[in-house]
Amino acid sequence: MIPSGADAQRIRVLVPGTGTRFRCGGLSVALQTARLLSDLRPTQVVTYRERSGSEPFLADVLRAEPAPGQGLWIVSWGFDVPALLRRLRGRAVLYQAHSTGYGFDLPPGVPVAAVSRNTLGYWGDRAPRNPLFLLPNALEPQWFERGARASLQQRARPIDVLVQRRKSSAYVLHQLVPALRAQGLKVEVQDGWVDDLVALFNNASVYLYDSADHWRCAGVSEGFGLPPLEASACGCVVFSSVNHALADILTPGVMGHQLGCGSLQHDVARISAAVARPADWRPTPSEMERLLSPYSEDALVNGWRRVLNELDALMPRLQAEPPLRSVPLAALRRRRWLAAARRVVNRLPGWLPGR
Protein backbone atom coordinates (compact mmCIF):
# COMPACT_ATOMS: atom_id res chain seq x y z
CA MET A 1 0.00 0.00 0.00
CA ILE A 2 1.41 3.41 -0.98
CA PRO A 3 0.57 6.30 1.36
CA SER A 4 -1.53 9.05 -0.14
CA GLY A 5 -2.50 12.61 0.64
CA ALA A 6 -0.81 14.29 3.60
CA ASP A 7 0.77 11.02 4.74
CA ALA A 8 2.62 10.67 1.42
CA GLN A 9 4.04 14.17 1.92
CA ARG A 10 5.30 13.59 5.47
CA ILE A 11 9.07 13.69 6.07
CA ARG A 12 10.91 12.31 9.09
CA VAL A 13 14.54 13.26 9.74
CA LEU A 14 16.37 10.72 11.91
CA VAL A 15 19.03 11.77 14.44
CA PRO A 16 20.45 9.74 17.34
CA GLY A 17 19.43 12.44 19.79
CA THR A 18 19.30 16.18 20.25
CA GLY A 19 21.10 16.47 23.59
CA THR A 20 24.59 17.84 24.20
CA ARG A 21 26.28 14.42 23.79
CA PHE A 22 25.32 14.45 20.10
CA ARG A 23 26.19 18.11 19.45
CA CYS A 24 28.34 18.29 16.31
CA GLY A 25 28.22 19.48 12.71
CA GLY A 26 26.20 16.44 11.62
CA LEU A 27 23.45 17.20 14.13
CA SER A 28 23.38 20.87 13.16
CA VAL A 29 22.99 19.98 9.49
CA ALA A 30 20.24 17.42 10.22
CA LEU A 31 18.28 19.92 12.30
CA GLN A 32 18.75 22.59 9.65
CA THR A 33 17.51 20.12 7.01
CA ALA A 34 14.39 19.43 9.06
CA ARG A 35 13.77 23.13 9.56
CA LEU A 36 14.07 23.92 5.85
CA LEU A 37 11.99 20.92 4.76
CA SER A 38 9.21 22.02 7.11
CA ASP A 39 8.67 24.97 4.75
CA LEU A 40 7.85 22.47 2.00
CA ARG A 41 6.08 19.56 3.73
CA PRO A 42 5.09 18.36 7.21
CA THR A 43 8.41 17.40 8.81
CA GLN A 44 9.42 15.79 12.11
CA VAL A 45 12.74 15.13 13.80
CA VAL A 46 12.77 11.56 15.15
CA THR A 47 15.42 10.29 17.59
CA TYR A 48 16.57 6.66 17.78
CA ARG A 49 19.19 6.38 20.55
CA GLU A 50 18.19 8.96 23.12
CA ARG A 51 14.61 9.78 23.99
CA SER A 52 13.66 13.43 23.96
CA GLY A 53 10.76 15.17 25.57
CA SER A 54 9.72 16.88 22.33
CA GLU A 55 10.68 14.54 19.44
CA PRO A 56 9.10 11.14 18.74
CA PHE A 57 11.25 8.01 19.23
CA LEU A 58 11.89 5.67 16.31
CA ALA A 59 10.87 2.44 18.02
CA ASP A 60 7.54 3.96 19.06
CA VAL A 61 6.80 5.24 15.54
CA LEU A 62 7.62 1.88 13.92
CA ARG A 63 5.34 0.03 16.34
CA ALA A 64 2.49 2.42 15.58
CA GLU A 65 2.98 2.35 11.78
CA PRO A 66 3.57 -1.04 10.14
CA ALA A 67 5.53 -0.91 6.87
CA PRO A 68 5.30 0.73 4.38
CA GLY A 69 4.21 3.40 6.85
CA GLN A 70 3.89 7.06 6.03
CA GLY A 71 5.99 9.42 4.01
CA LEU A 72 9.77 9.64 3.57
CA TRP A 73 12.48 8.86 6.12
CA ILE A 74 15.86 10.64 5.91
CA VAL A 75 18.91 8.94 7.45
CA SER A 76 22.35 10.54 7.62
CA TRP A 77 24.46 9.32 10.58
CA GLY A 78 27.13 7.36 8.67
CA PHE A 79 28.02 4.70 11.25
CA ASP A 80 24.33 4.01 11.94
CA VAL A 81 23.04 3.95 8.35
CA PRO A 82 23.20 0.15 7.71
CA ALA A 83 21.29 -0.67 10.92
CA LEU A 84 18.73 2.08 10.27
CA LEU A 85 18.12 0.86 6.73
CA ARG A 86 17.45 -2.63 8.09
CA ARG A 87 14.96 -1.24 10.61
CA LEU A 88 13.26 0.82 7.89
CA ARG A 89 13.09 -1.98 5.30
CA GLY A 90 9.92 -1.73 3.24
CA ARG A 91 9.57 2.02 3.85
CA ALA A 92 10.52 5.00 1.70
CA VAL A 93 14.04 6.05 2.78
CA LEU A 94 16.55 8.61 1.50
CA TYR A 95 20.20 8.66 2.57
CA GLN A 96 21.57 12.18 3.06
CA ALA A 97 25.24 11.36 2.53
CA HIS A 98 27.92 13.47 4.18
CA SER A 99 31.25 11.70 4.65
CA THR A 100 32.40 8.69 2.63
CA GLY A 101 34.45 5.67 3.58
CA TYR A 102 32.14 3.89 6.02
CA GLY A 103 32.38 0.76 3.87
CA PHE A 104 28.72 -0.22 3.60
CA ASP A 105 26.71 -0.73 0.43
CA LEU A 106 23.20 0.58 -0.15
CA PRO A 107 20.19 -1.57 -0.99
CA PRO A 108 18.96 -1.12 -4.58
CA GLY A 109 16.60 1.80 -5.04
CA VAL A 110 17.60 3.80 -1.94
CA PRO A 111 18.09 7.42 -3.13
CA VAL A 112 21.21 9.33 -2.12
CA ALA A 113 21.25 13.09 -1.52
CA ALA A 114 24.98 13.90 -1.47
CA VAL A 115 26.13 17.11 0.19
CA SER A 116 29.25 17.38 -2.01
CA ARG A 117 30.49 16.32 -5.42
CA ASN A 118 33.12 14.25 -3.67
CA THR A 119 30.40 12.21 -1.98
CA LEU A 120 28.27 12.19 -5.12
CA GLY A 121 31.14 10.68 -7.09
CA TYR A 122 31.76 8.08 -4.38
CA TRP A 123 28.19 6.79 -4.59
CA GLY A 124 28.11 7.23 -8.35
CA ASP A 125 30.89 4.65 -8.38
CA ARG A 126 29.68 2.41 -5.55
CA ALA A 127 25.93 2.50 -6.30
CA PRO A 128 25.57 3.69 -9.93
CA ARG A 129 21.97 2.42 -10.30
CA ASN A 130 20.65 4.12 -7.15
CA PRO A 131 18.95 7.52 -7.61
CA LEU A 132 21.60 10.19 -6.95
CA PHE A 133 21.12 13.88 -6.15
CA LEU A 134 23.41 16.77 -5.18
CA LEU A 135 22.19 18.98 -2.33
CA PRO A 136 25.04 20.99 -0.77
CA ASN A 137 24.79 22.08 2.82
CA ALA A 138 23.77 25.67 3.42
CA LEU A 139 25.21 28.42 5.55
CA GLU A 140 22.79 29.59 8.21
CA PRO A 141 21.39 33.10 7.61
CA GLN A 142 23.59 34.65 10.31
CA TRP A 143 26.68 34.15 8.11
CA PHE A 144 25.10 36.08 5.24
CA GLU A 145 23.53 38.74 7.47
CA ARG A 146 26.41 39.42 9.89
CA GLY A 147 29.49 38.26 8.01
CA ALA A 148 31.83 41.27 7.52
CA ARG A 149 32.88 40.53 3.94
CA ALA A 150 31.72 43.66 2.09
CA SER A 151 34.46 46.14 1.19
CA LEU A 152 32.95 48.89 3.38
CA GLN A 153 33.09 46.57 6.38
CA GLN A 154 36.80 45.74 6.07
CA ARG A 155 38.94 47.15 8.87
CA ALA A 156 42.01 46.30 10.88
CA ARG A 157 41.14 43.10 12.71
CA PRO A 158 42.47 42.20 16.17
CA ILE A 159 43.35 38.62 15.19
CA ASP A 160 45.87 38.27 12.38
CA VAL A 161 45.51 34.49 12.04
CA LEU A 162 42.76 32.27 13.47
CA VAL A 163 43.15 28.52 13.94
CA GLN A 164 40.58 26.14 15.44
CA ARG A 165 42.37 23.39 17.32
CA ARG A 166 39.82 20.68 16.51
CA LYS A 167 40.80 18.82 13.31
CA SER A 168 43.96 20.92 12.92
CA SER A 169 47.11 19.05 11.88
CA ALA A 170 50.30 18.76 13.91
CA TYR A 171 51.96 20.71 11.11
CA VAL A 172 49.71 23.73 11.70
CA LEU A 173 49.80 23.60 15.49
CA HIS A 174 53.46 22.74 16.09
CA GLN A 175 55.30 24.17 13.06
CA LEU A 176 53.24 26.83 11.28
CA VAL A 177 51.72 28.61 14.30
CA PRO A 178 55.12 29.07 16.06
CA ALA A 179 56.67 30.26 12.79
CA LEU A 180 53.90 32.83 12.27
CA ARG A 181 54.21 34.07 15.85
CA ALA A 182 57.95 34.42 15.33
CA GLN A 183 57.09 36.86 12.51
CA GLY A 184 55.21 39.00 15.05
CA LEU A 185 51.71 37.96 13.91
CA LYS A 186 48.86 37.70 16.41
CA VAL A 187 47.73 34.08 16.13
CA GLU A 188 44.73 32.77 18.09
CA VAL A 189 44.25 29.02 18.49
CA GLN A 190 40.60 28.65 19.45
CA ASP A 191 39.61 25.65 21.55
CA GLY A 192 36.28 24.67 23.05
CA TRP A 193 32.78 26.01 22.54
CA VAL A 194 32.23 29.52 21.14
CA ASP A 195 28.88 31.25 21.64
CA ASP A 196 29.27 33.62 18.68
CA LEU A 197 31.36 32.17 15.86
CA VAL A 198 30.39 34.96 13.46
CA ALA A 199 31.91 37.56 15.77
CA LEU A 200 35.06 35.46 16.16
CA PHE A 201 35.53 35.07 12.40
CA ASN A 202 34.74 38.76 11.79
CA ASN A 203 37.68 39.60 14.04
CA ALA A 204 40.23 37.54 12.06
CA SER A 205 42.11 38.51 8.90
CA VAL A 206 43.27 35.01 7.93
CA TYR A 207 41.74 31.62 8.76
CA LEU A 208 43.70 28.35 8.63
CA TYR A 209 41.97 24.97 8.18
CA ASP A 210 43.94 21.76 7.68
CA SER A 211 41.78 18.67 8.22
CA ALA A 212 43.50 16.17 5.88
CA ASP A 213 45.42 14.32 8.61
CA HIS A 214 42.39 14.23 10.90
CA TRP A 215 40.16 12.54 8.33
CA ARG A 216 42.87 10.19 7.05
CA CYS A 217 43.28 8.96 10.62
CA ALA A 218 39.51 8.66 11.10
CA GLY A 219 39.20 6.61 7.91
CA VAL A 220 36.32 8.67 6.53
CA SER A 221 36.19 11.85 4.46
CA GLU A 222 35.67 15.53 5.08
CA GLY A 223 31.97 15.55 4.34
CA PHE A 224 31.50 19.18 3.38
CA GLY A 225 33.85 21.63 5.08
CA LEU A 226 31.62 24.38 6.44
CA PRO A 227 34.30 26.25 8.48
CA PRO A 228 36.25 27.57 5.44
CA LEU A 229 32.96 28.65 3.87
CA GLU A 230 31.90 30.37 7.09
CA ALA A 231 35.26 32.13 7.30
CA SER A 232 34.91 33.30 3.68
CA ALA A 233 31.47 34.70 4.48
CA CYS A 234 33.11 36.79 7.20
CA GLY A 235 35.76 38.22 4.88
CA CYS A 236 38.66 36.09 6.10
CA VAL A 237 41.40 35.04 3.71
CA VAL A 238 41.23 31.24 3.84
CA PHE A 239 44.22 28.91 3.69
CA SER A 240 43.05 25.30 3.71
CA SER A 241 43.80 21.73 2.81
CA VAL A 242 41.80 20.64 -0.25
CA ASN A 243 40.99 17.07 0.75
CA HIS A 244 37.69 15.42 -0.11
CA ALA A 245 34.70 17.79 -0.20
CA LEU A 246 36.86 20.86 0.42
CA ALA A 247 37.78 20.64 -3.25
CA ASP A 248 34.13 21.45 -4.03
CA ILE A 249 34.29 24.93 -2.57
CA LEU A 250 37.99 25.83 -2.56
CA THR A 251 39.59 26.53 -5.92
CA PRO A 252 43.20 27.28 -4.94
CA GLY A 253 43.94 30.92 -5.71
CA VAL A 254 40.26 31.84 -6.14
CA MET A 255 38.02 31.07 -3.16
CA GLY A 256 40.98 30.15 -0.95
CA HIS A 257 44.59 29.06 -0.94
CA GLN A 258 46.24 25.71 -0.34
CA LEU A 259 47.73 25.26 3.11
CA GLY A 260 50.85 23.14 3.47
CA CYS A 261 51.91 24.10 -0.04
CA GLY A 262 55.23 22.24 -0.19
CA SER A 263 57.27 24.56 2.06
CA LEU A 264 56.88 25.96 5.57
CA GLN A 265 58.59 29.21 4.60
CA HIS A 266 56.34 29.52 1.54
CA ASP A 267 53.28 29.18 3.80
CA VAL A 268 54.67 31.77 6.23
CA ALA A 269 55.43 34.23 3.42
CA ARG A 270 51.99 33.90 1.82
CA ILE A 271 50.06 34.11 5.08
CA SER A 272 52.08 37.14 6.19
CA ALA A 273 51.35 38.84 2.87
CA ALA A 274 47.64 38.05 3.24
CA VAL A 275 47.59 39.61 6.72
CA ALA A 276 49.31 42.73 5.39
CA ARG A 277 47.06 43.13 2.32
CA PRO A 278 43.98 40.89 2.70
CA ALA A 279 42.09 42.49 -0.18
CA ASP A 280 44.74 41.16 -2.58
CA TRP A 281 44.06 37.60 -1.43
CA ARG A 282 40.24 37.57 -1.36
CA PRO A 283 37.70 37.52 -4.17
CA THR A 284 36.07 40.87 -4.87
CA PRO A 285 32.87 41.47 -2.91
CA SER A 286 30.68 40.81 -5.97
CA GLU A 287 32.61 37.64 -6.82
CA MET A 288 32.34 36.46 -3.23
CA GLU A 289 28.56 36.91 -3.29
CA ARG A 290 28.42 34.86 -6.47
CA LEU A 291 30.54 32.09 -4.93
CA LEU A 292 28.47 31.99 -1.74
CA SER A 293 25.00 32.12 -3.32
CA PRO A 294 24.76 28.35 -4.03
CA TYR A 295 25.16 27.78 -0.28
CA SER A 296 22.27 29.94 0.88
CA GLU A 297 19.25 28.41 2.57
CA ASP A 298 17.02 29.67 -0.26
CA ALA A 299 19.15 27.75 -2.78
CA LEU A 300 18.95 24.60 -0.65
CA VAL A 301 15.17 24.85 -0.27
CA ASN A 302 14.83 25.11 -4.05
CA GLY A 303 17.07 22.07 -4.41
CA TRP A 304 15.01 20.04 -1.96
CA ARG A 305 11.81 21.07 -3.74
CA ARG A 306 13.19 19.73 -7.02
CA VAL A 307 14.37 16.47 -5.44
CA LEU A 308 11.11 15.86 -3.57
CA ASN A 309 9.09 16.41 -6.74
CA GLU A 310 11.21 13.82 -8.53
CA LEU A 311 10.89 11.38 -5.63
CA ASP A 312 7.08 11.78 -5.77
CA ALA A 313 7.21 10.24 -9.24
CA LEU A 314 9.99 7.75 -8.48
CA MET A 315 8.99 6.19 -5.15
CA PRO A 316 5.71 4.57 -6.34
CA ARG A 317 7.63 3.01 -9.25
CA LEU A 318 10.26 1.64 -6.90
CA GLN A 319 7.49 0.00 -4.88
CA ALA A 320 5.68 -1.31 -7.96
CA GLU A 321 8.64 -2.95 -9.72
CA PRO A 322 12.07 -4.32 -8.75
CA PRO A 323 14.61 -1.48 -8.61
CA LEU A 324 17.62 -1.52 -10.89
CA ARG A 325 20.63 -3.27 -9.38
CA SER A 326 24.32 -2.52 -9.73
CA VAL A 327 26.47 -5.38 -10.98
CA PRO A 328 28.51 -6.73 -8.03
CA LEU A 329 32.21 -5.90 -8.15
CA ALA A 330 33.19 -9.58 -8.15
CA ALA A 331 31.01 -10.19 -11.21
CA LEU A 332 32.53 -7.19 -13.01
CA ARG A 333 36.02 -8.46 -12.34
CA ARG A 334 35.06 -11.94 -13.52
CA ARG A 335 33.74 -10.48 -16.78
CA ARG A 336 36.98 -8.56 -17.31
CA TRP A 337 39.02 -11.71 -16.64
CA LEU A 338 36.95 -13.73 -19.11
CA ALA A 339 37.21 -11.00 -21.75
CA ALA A 340 40.98 -10.87 -21.30
CA ALA A 341 41.19 -14.67 -21.51
CA ARG A 342 39.23 -14.65 -24.78
CA ARG A 343 41.62 -12.09 -26.25
CA VAL A 344 44.57 -14.33 -25.37
CA VAL A 345 42.88 -17.39 -26.90
CA ASN A 346 42.03 -15.45 -30.04
CA ARG A 347 45.73 -14.73 -30.58
CA LEU A 348 46.80 -18.37 -30.24
CA PRO A 349 48.05 -19.91 -33.55
CA GLY A 350 45.74 -22.36 -35.21
CA TRP A 351 42.68 -21.23 -33.24
CA LEU A 352 39.49 -21.43 -35.26
CA PRO A 353 36.14 -19.97 -34.20
CA GLY A 354 33.67 -22.61 -33.14
CA ARG A 355 36.30 -25.30 -32.35
Rank of each mutant, 00 (worst) to 15 (best):
R157M: 06
S272I: 04
L185P: 01
T100K: 01
L348P: 02
D195Q: 12
D298L: 12
S169M: 01
R51W: 14
R165G: 01
S28H: 14
L134A: 07
G235S: 06
R155K: 14
D105S: 12
V81F: 00
L311Q: 03
V327I: 13
F144E: 03
R165F: 03
D60Q: 14
I249Y: 07
R117K: 14
V220W: 13
A204Q: 07
P228A: 07
R89Y: 02
E145G: 06
A320W: 01
G19H: 03
V237Q: 06
A218V: 12
S293W: 08
L292I: 08
C236R: 09
D160K: 05
A199C: 00
L348A: 15
Q96C: 04
R51F: 15
P108Q: 01
D213P: 05
V198P: 11
V29T: 14
T284G: 10
A330T: 09
A83S: 11
L106D: 01
A313H: 10
I271E: 05
D125I: 10
G78H: 07
A127V: 11
R41Q: 08
P322N: 07
R49A: 14
R91D: 02
E55W: 05
V61P: 05
N309R: 13
P3V: 00
E321F: 13
D105W: 01
L36D: 13
V189R: 06
A114Q: 04
D196C: 12
W77F: 15
V238P: 09
L135F: 02
F104K: 06
T20L: 03
G101Y: 10
P252F: 06
A138W: 08
Q183F: 01
P3C: 11
D280V: 00
A59R: 15
D298T: 15
E289H: 10
H244E: 08
P178F: 04
E140I: 06
L139C: 10
A6D: 11
E297H: 07
E289M: 13
E140P: 11
W215D: 05
G53E: 14
F133W: 07
W193T: 10
V194E: 12
R149Y: 06
R10A: 11
P141S: 09
L84T: 02
V93G: 00
E188Y: 13
L120I: 00
P107E: 01
D280G: 03
G260S: 03
I2S: 11
R333N: 09
G192Q: 09
V187G: 08
P68F: 01
S241W: 09
S116C: 10
A269Y: 08
S54C: 05
T43R: 03
Q142T: 12
L106P: 02
D60Y: 10
S99E: 14
G223N: 08
R87L: 13
V327K: 09
L338Q: 15
D267R: 04
Q32G: 14
T20F: 00
V327D: 03
A67N: 02
L200D: 09
E55V: 00
M255K: 08
V275Q: 07
R49Q: 15
Q32I: 06
V189N: 10
F224P: 14
S28L: 13
H244N: 13
